[in-house]
């Protein structure tokens, strides 16, 4: 994604990037006439403008992220994704900020570049522990809209919401003309509901318990999940939010490739 990070403002710039053949619709002023004189073909001189893209990583650190499957928690998975994305972004010179979200101990690393920032970011991710709940929009607004730029915002969350607070955040950010991606971390059993017999479920954030016959509840659950998923994808599409669901049994590199390829296609 960042390797082929397209310049938002292609055209005249200080740093020469490449020549490409003229396409209909290109500004004739950008044709390199000297080259035309030499080769008798139209070449357009391209230069990257020095665009400064800030990548805002928003990692959900609420208690629900402690849900584990096969020895790894959702937060572990989110950590890896965030770290990998931060590494990619910083390698190509973008500034990266990290916002860890819960209502107990929210953390914020302002957007910076550089090696040392990367290490600070890794350290923050390493010591991150899940607690509390996702706060309401007012608590986040100041952090997320501070820059005023059009940033690339990547929200990594399990979307365990009381209401629709997380998707609201994504929607609001998209409405602020940020480039918003919503990476939904789900456990495999969240998707397949691979439980049997009478099972008591406990909600991590609230401690609420519910005992259901999993075999009977499965159909209803999967149906509701499907409907919820459809709604969510629809809402994201409407709000111009990239949505991607990753399950814990997916290898992280595979998940990242899926995300990057998806974004490339989107462009």
């Amino acid at each position: 994604m960042f390797g082929i990070h397209p310049s938002r403002l292609p055209g005249p710039g200080l740093e020469f990037s490449q020549y490409r053949s003229y396409q209909p619709g290109d500004d004739p002023r950008r044709v390199d006439w000297r080259l035309f004189a030499r080769t008798d073909r139209y070449w357009v001189r391209e230069a990257d403008t020095a665009t400064s893209v800030t990548v805002q990583l928003v990692v959900d650190a609420s208690a629900s992220m402690a849900q584990s499957e096969d020895g790894a928690t959702k937060l572990d998975y989110a950590r890896l994704i965030a770290a990998a994305l931060a590494l990619l972004a910083l390698r190509q010179g973008d500034a990266v900020s990290l916002l860890t979200v819960n209502d107990v101990a929210p953390g914020f690393l302002p957007p910076r570049r550089g090696h040392r920032h990367l290490h600070r970011l890794f350290q923050t991710l390493t010591v991150l522990s899940p607690a509390g709940q996702w706060p309401g929009w007012p608590g986040l607004e100041r952090r997320l809209t501070a820059g005023g730029h059009r940033d690339l915002v990547i929200v990594i969350s399990d979307l365990a919401e009381r209401e629709e607070e997380i998707r609201t955040v994504a929607g609001k950010l998209a409405a602020l003309r940020h480039d918003v991606s919503l990476l939904h971390i789900a456990a495999r059993r969240d998707v397949t509901f691979d439980y049997h017999g009478v099972v008591t479920f406990e909600e991590l954030e609230t401690g609420r318990r519910l005992t259901v016959d999993a075999d009977v509840a499965r159909a209803t659950y999967l149906e509701r999940l499907d409907r919820d998923d459809t709604e969510l994808r629809g809402a994201c599409a409407t709000a111009r939010v990239d949505y991607l669901r990753l399950t814990l049994d997916q290898p992280v590199d595979h998940a990242l490739r899926q995300y990057v390829v998806g974004r490339t296609r989107l462009r």
């Binding site: 629900s64 849900q67 969240d190 008591t200 479920f201 406990e202 991590l204 954030e205 609420r208």
Partner: peptide
């Protein structure tokens, strides 16, 4: 109990 993120 099985601890899950949400029982919504």
């Amino acid at each position: 109990p099985v601890r899950v993120g949400s029982i919504r």
